[in-house]
Write a protein that binds this DNA or RNA. Structure first.
Length: 420
RNA sequence: GUGAAUGUAGCUCAAUCGGUAAGAGCGCUGGACUGUGGCUCCAGAGGUUGGGGGUUCAAUUCCCCUCAUUCACCCCA
């Protein structure tokens, strides 16, 4: 690595060079196509929000809010934060713009950059991209199943194989409370043997102790959330499973899956992949029936998820994109260069992708460049050609070369006659 | 925030036990072919060995500090 490169990109951010940009474009394109098919509309929202929004919705006690946010003060002294996740902004928009008045059910998606201040590692960055889908207004488990199906369709279309789906239900606020009571009873006698973090979580958010990897084996016999579901939640969860079966989606019920954010209720799920290293989660989400009311809106059920696009990229197979241009123009002297420059402009107007030399290079170098650019055709203009009002047109695949009149119609005909 | 590993040309990597003037492949530039790409051959450019300090007659090599990257922990997408 060059040491004199004193200015480099910030830790945890990534530069995307053309070859990789191609994969990103492909990913975005597939996401948009599938979202359209499922009738989700795009939402775009600001890079930063009032810190308060995330504290309230993501949750004061979550890892994200406690130590991962990029928070700063603006000149007016307001505390602002670079968005660490999308759902809070979507909900804010929903309330702020009265979107509920458009229809009883709203289906949205987004593709946005997120920011979290963690140590980077495989599949984890400080600036990263997520796409997400959110459905506001329906409590049907059909929606939960649809959301999962939507993500799986996107993975499939991109050639990503080996995704596994984990689901669980953590119940509504009532049964969640019942469960937490039972969990605390189970934990109390063994609390001293747990790690420091878990001891804190016992007070702040006992559910998340189930996530702890250190103490995992001590929790094998912990009570399961699904055993404490009320009748409604029980039915909701079994309906979800039934709908997933209808759609032919294979999944595992993971009773220890609780998710890290405060706002989840009932359905939670995640997409995991074994080739991602330690950060094996490609995406995850769930239902958040209480969040909108909590943030000042009407009591409205909702469900959604986010998928890490940087992680998807790691799983995507190589693709051969639209590399190359239609025409490269080689010119041999000053006057021809001007003629070529004019021709170039006309060809572009006609919709051809083309270019020429700007370095006054030798003909050989110009041909090399044409080859490097993967041009299908090379047009040569020199003194001789100019005298006779023609250009030479060479196919870079076959090497065949012929003279064509120097006018757009003749060139176009010759190129399209050979097909693509 | 904690830990470990790794930093040599644009990229991927060499350099014996510390010993000449740090090499190769790919890529780049030019030539062989003075108006024709790819293939081949030849030549050239490109390095303060991440940075700083120390040990030594001598450091890419050993020691310390620092920075960066990677992987893992925590946690998440």
């Amino acid at each position: 690595m060059g040491s004199n490169a004193k200015i480099r990109n910030i830790k945890g951010t990534r530069d995307i060079l053309p070859e990789e940009a191609l994969k990103w474009r492909r990913m975005e394109q597939v996401i948009r196509e599938k979202m359209k098919a499922f009738n989700y509309e795009e939402l775009r929202f600001p890079t930063f929000e009032y810190t308060e929004l995330f504290k309230k919705s993501t949750g004061e006690d979550t890892e994200i809010v406690q130590k991962e946010m990029y928070t700063f003060k603006d000149m007016g002294g307001r505390s602002l934060t670079l968005k660490p996740e999308g759902t809070p902004s979507v909900v804010r928009m929903y309330i702020q713009h009265g979107l509920r008045n458009r229809s009883k059910i709203q289906k949205y998606y987004y593709i946005e950059r997120m920011f979290r201040q963690e140590r980077p590692q495989k599949g984890r960055f400080r600036e990263f991209r997520q796409f997400g889908a959110e459905v506001i207004g329906s409590m049907s488990p059909q929606i939960d199943a649809e959301l999962i199906k939507l993500a799986l369709d996107i993975f499939k279309e991109l050639g990503i194989k080996g995704i596994r789906v984990n689901i669980n239900s953590i119940g509504c606020p009532e049964c969640k409370e019942e469960y937490i009571k039972a969990l605390k009873e189970f934990l109390s006698p063994i609390l001293n043997g747990l790690c420091e973090d878990c001891k804190k979580r016992f007070i702040t958010n006992p559910l998340r102790i189930l996530d702890c990897k250190k103490d995992r084996d001590k929790l094998n016999s912990a009570p399961n959330t699904i055993d404490y579901l009320c009748d409604d939640c029980k039915r909701h969860f079994s309906d979800l499973r039934e709908y997933l079966d209808y759609l032919g989606i294979a999944y595992d019920v993971n009773p220890k899956l609780v998710r890290g954010l405060d706002y989840y209720t009932r359905t939670v799920f995640e997409f995991i992949h074994s080739e991602l290293g330690a950060q094996d989660e490609v995406g995850g989400g769930g239902r958040y029936d209480g969040l909108i009311e909590f943030l000042g809106g009407e009591n409205t059920p909702a469900s959604g998820y986010a998928v890490g696009m940087d992680r998807m990229l790691l799983l995507m197979p190589e693709i051969d994109g639209d590399k190359g241009i239609d025409i490269y123009i080689v010119t041999l002297d000053k006057e021809s260069d001007i003629a070529g420059w004019k021709l170039l402009s006309g060809l572009r107007e006609e919709g051809f992708s083309c270019d020429k030399d700007y370095l006054e290079r030798s003909i050989k170098a110009q041909f090399r460049e044409s080859d490097r650019q993967n041009a299908r055709w090379t047009i040569i203009i020199g003194q001789e050609e100019r005298k006779r009002g023609v250009v030479k047109l060479k196919s870079m695949e076959t090497g065949e070369q012929k003279e064509v009149l120097l006018n757009m119609k003749a060139i176009k005909e010759e190129i399209s006659a050979k097909g693509s």
